[in-house]
Amino acid sequence: MNVYKGKITFNKEQCVLCQTCAFVCPAGAINISCVEPHKSYDFIIWHNTCTVCGNCTYFCPTGAIALSNTLAEATPQSEKYTAITANMVEYGECQKCHEPMINVPQTMLQKGFKNVSEELVSLFNLCPKCRRDHTFAKRAL
């Protein structure tokens, strides 16, 4: 008899590497480790350790982690000791200076701003230094 356990899913395009999920996970089922500083990070969810408490989904500011409620995505009990979700989260680069940076997902911009225009999106494609310089130049001129 197969008993099914819900599964935590991960969308690496939404992740900003804040590591809140790993911090709030009481079971220690989420591991984020540096592969190459300011380039890429391994993001692993150990489904055998996960208690499906939902803390990671509740506290994730971007919605990168979600709890699946469909049976097709659930992990069968027979695979509970080998099932993991593994992804590599990579830094993007500043559109102006090409320094590595974490991209701000559209969902996060929508949470913070009433109207998300193309100008706002392009502003958040700049690193914090270039964003400051751009904003200052625009106000000073």
Rank of each mutant, 00 (worst) to 15 (best):
A64R: 02
N69R: 11
F59V: 00
C127M: 04
K114V: 14
A27N: 14
K12H: 13
V16I: 15
C60V: 06
N31H: 05
Y81E: 13
I8P: 01
T135C: 03
V104K: 08
I102S: 05
A29Q: 04
A29R: 02
M101P: 02
T85R: 02
A27S: 15
P26D: 09
Q106P: 05
E90F: 12
K5H: 08
T51H: 09
C130W: 02
Y91G: 05
G6Y: 05
E90W: 09
C130R: 02
I84G: 03
V3T: 08
Y58C: 06
E73S: 06
P61R: 08
F10A: 03
K111C: 10
N2M: 00
A140V: 14
A72H: 00
V121C: 11
L67T: 06
I45M: 07
N125Y: 12
L17S: 04
A86Y: 12
A29H: 03
K12W: 07
A64Q: 05
Q95D: 15
T62K: 03
Y41I: 02
P105Y: 10
P105I: 10
L123C: 06
C15V: 11
P26H: 07
V16W: 04
I45D: 05
T62M: 06
Y81F: 12
N69W: 10
F136I: 10
E73W: 01
K96Q: 14
Q19M: 07
M88W: 03
T51D: 13
H134P: 00
H38Y: 13
Q77V: 08
C34D: 11
L126P: 04
V121P: 11
T51V: 14
R139Y: 07
S122E: 15
P100L: 07
E13D: 14
M108L: 15
W46N: 15
G6S: 09
L17C: 05
Q110Y: 10
I44T: 13
R131V: 04
H38L: 13
C60G: 05
T85G: 02
V89W: 09
V104N: 06
Q95R: 15
H134N: 07
Y4R: 04
N69D: 11
I8E: 03
I102Y: 06
F59H: 06
E90M: 14
C50K: 05
T85W: 02
F23L: 02
F59E: 06
K129T: 08
T82K: 13
V24P: 00
E36A: 14
R132D: 09
H134F: 13
Q19H: 01
A137Y: 07
E79N: 12
Y58L: 11
E118C: 06
C25E: 04
N115E: 15
I45N: 03
M88I: 15
E13L: 08
E13C: 03
T135M: 08
C94D: 08
N87Q: 13
E119G: 12
Q95L: 14
K12I: 08
L17Y: 05
V104Q: 09
C34K: 12
I44V: 14
P100M: 07
L71A: 00
S122P: 07
D133P: 00
R139Q: 09
N115W: 08
N31Q: 09
L17G: 04
K7L: 01
D42R: 10
N11T: 10
F124V: 02
E90Q: 15
K138Y: 09
H47K: 11
A140W: 11
E119F: 07
E90P: 10
T20S: 03
V16P: 01
C94L: 08
T85Q: 02
S33Y: 07
G6E: 12
A83E: 11
N48C: 13
